[in-house]
Design a protein around this nucleic acid. Structure first.
Lengths: 137, 137
DNA sequence: ACAAACCCTATAAAAAAGATAGGGTTTATA
DNA sequence: TATAAACCCTATCTTTTTTATAGGGTTTGT
């Protein structure tokens, strides 16, 4: 399951996508719309910004805005940023690889092999679904 | 990512699958093979048994054994049992449905719609991959 | 009778997730 | 140029979940 962080991020991105004609949207407005803690959401927007998905403007009249087209923001990117690996096992993660303690040899591990296939199929889905798909509803 | 419970369950099922000619396999042997705590593994095997995936024999000379063909044990079943929902959101889970607090209306939520599609595609994968695939390596 | 091995429940310890706090910096505008 | 609005940043606290342990109960082959 997605963490609340990722869920909130998706809601925020959706909100920003719906208000693209506006210069900047306030954290406050997004937080209120979805009943999310202002401060918690702030941290999440910060992360999205650092990852290059959002732009922001400081000072009075400032706020956040999308700096990419919705079709260029795949779910895989949002999930990886806030939740970490998409793979089901650390030993098959492309972005967060770690060996599995209970596994003597990856080369001989059948679980590893199958999970690589699952990962590849899952990625196909999550890389193809984008914010655009959410906005189209 | 899969929890250790699910990982251990997959290792145990794999071990049992490889030793199907034997009447019963000891918890101890599986635990030792993968460096898992005996007691923790015991709880997991119990769950698998209650779910109808394993049989057991008590008393001296007892142990656990598969009571299904490996191709009849899909990953989806193991994951659901030990980790819970496969869906990325509670509001699109088939087996563990719950509404999302921050969502005013599922009918109007674009995230919900997309996650239903992701769920269906993911299930296709996890229902088709079985213990047999792991054993074949 | 006895020891081996599964069965069951409760609790503790560790890790992760969720949330809050508090001040810093920038900027529009009066 | 003072002020208030709004983002920026880091640290800490709380809660929940996961992981692990404990301790005894029950069954069964020999």
């Amino acid at each position: 399951m997605l963490s609340k962080k990722t869920k909130y991020a998706l809601h925020a991105l959706t909100y920003l996508g719906k208000h693209r004609e506006e210069k900047a949207v306030l954290i406050h407005d997004i937080a209120e719309e979805h009943g999310i803690s202002h401060k918690f959401l702030e941290n999440i927007l910060l992360e999205l910004k650092k990852a290059g998905m959002l732009g922001s403007k400081k000072g009075k009249g400032g706020g956040y805005y999308l700096i990419k087209e919705p079709q260029d923001i795949p779910l895989s990117k949002v999930i990886r940023l806030l939740d970490g690996p998409i793979a089901l096992l650390p030993c098959v993660s492309l972005n967060y690889y770690e060996p599995c303690a209970e596994c003597k040899s990856e080369a001989e591990c059948g679980i590893n092999k199958v999970m690589i296939q699952v990962r590849d199929e899952t990625l196909k889905i999550l890389e193809n679904k984008t914010l655009q798909d959410i906005l189209e509803k």
